[in-house]
């Protein structure tokens, strides 16, 4: 047994079925100490990888959710202004000199660590998840490159803070915009696709063991068929699990038996008006019939 299959096994113990591609990319990224870039549609379990990896390795998970306009103050560090103000006032009353006040209020004590700085300052290396990097703007990408290549952060008032430990970095993107080549080149890459039938059955069995084999086969067959339809929002793994949970909650054990409940539970899979319209009752039943 080699390392990457062990890793795959560890992830499976945590309830995550990783494809060979993904497990290998993760293994390589961790062995080389490089960030791992995961791309794929929404709902294929990219974010989940980081959570599960942290759990499997018993590491802390630090998450940075990206959004447009994310800046250094929210991603790296910020000064604790309120405390600084109080400290200055207190110092003025005590008659402390300007230089020593300045030294004191611009010390680590007054620094608020944001996720990126937190991640490199932990004694025990954490898993750093940078979620939806493509939502942040290019300036932030450039910051990130700097932090990820040097593993150090420079605070003008304080000097350079070096990494205490190197976090395992996982970046996710779902193609809102193209990422820069520089970032891609620095990362190990894996494309996460929708799982095949066998994998999806395994996921369902892991996550909802109460679903019996026949129904599980029907659910997976139906969801897989649904993914082939032209939909605005293709149902992901989370949706499939919700669907399964809804059906078991409603006490259904055969998809084709109760059309009313079946139609109602489609709400967990089809999440826009257009998609509901695109899959009318007959189509859904035909797909379910085929899956059965």
């Amino acid at each position: 047994m080699t390392d990457w299959t062990t890793l795959q096994g560890d992830l499976a113990d945590q309830g995550y079925i990783a494809s060979d591609d993904l497990a290998m990319a993760l293994h390589i990224a961790m062995s080389l100490g490089r960030p791992l870039l995961l791309e794929g549609d929404a709902g294929v379990g990219k974010t989940e990888v980081a959570r599960v990896l942290a759990a499997a390795k018993e590491q802390e998970l630090i998450r940075l959710q990206c959004y447009e306009g994310l800046d250094a103050a929210h991603a790296i560090y910020e000064w604790n202004y309120q405390r600084q103000l109080l400290a200055i006032r207190a110092a003025a009353e005590d008659g402390e000199t300007g230089a020593s006040v300045e030294r004191r209020i611009f010390s680590q004590e007054f620094l608020l660590e944001r996720p990126l700085l937190q991640a490199i300052r932990r004694a025990h290396p954490p898993v750093l998840l940078i979620d939806e990097i493509d939502r942040a703007d290019e300036e932030f990408e450039a910051y990130l490159l700097e932090v990820l290549s040097d593993f150090q952060v420079t605070v003008p008032e304080l000097g350079t803070l070096k990494a205490v430990s190197r976090p395992t970095v996982i970046l996710t993107a779902n193609g809102t915009r193209d990422l820069s080549d520089a970032l891609r080149r620095r990362c190990v890459y894996a494309y996460v696709d929708y799982p095949d039938r066998r994998t999806e059955l395994a996921i369902l069995a892991k996550r909802c063991p109460e679903v019996d084999a026949t129904l599980a086969g029907q659910i997976v067959g139906f969801v897989q068929a649904l993914r082939k339809e032209e939909l605005e929002k293709t149902p992901g793994i989370a949706e499939m699990l919700d669907f399964a949970a809804a059906l078991t909650g409603l006490g259904v054990n055969d998809l084709t038996r109760d059309p009313v409940i079946f139609q109602a539970s489609l709400a967990t899979l089809l999440k826009t008006q257009a998609d509901r319209a695109a899959v009318p009752v007959e189509v859904a039943e035909r797909l379910a019939g085929k899956a059965a």
Binding site: M24, I28, E39, R184, C187, Y189, Y191
Partner: peptide, 14 residues
Amino acid sequence: LALRAVCTGCAEDA
């Protein structure tokens, strides 16, 4: 698998 993880950088390459 190993070379794919290192050498590819986007979905098309993969």
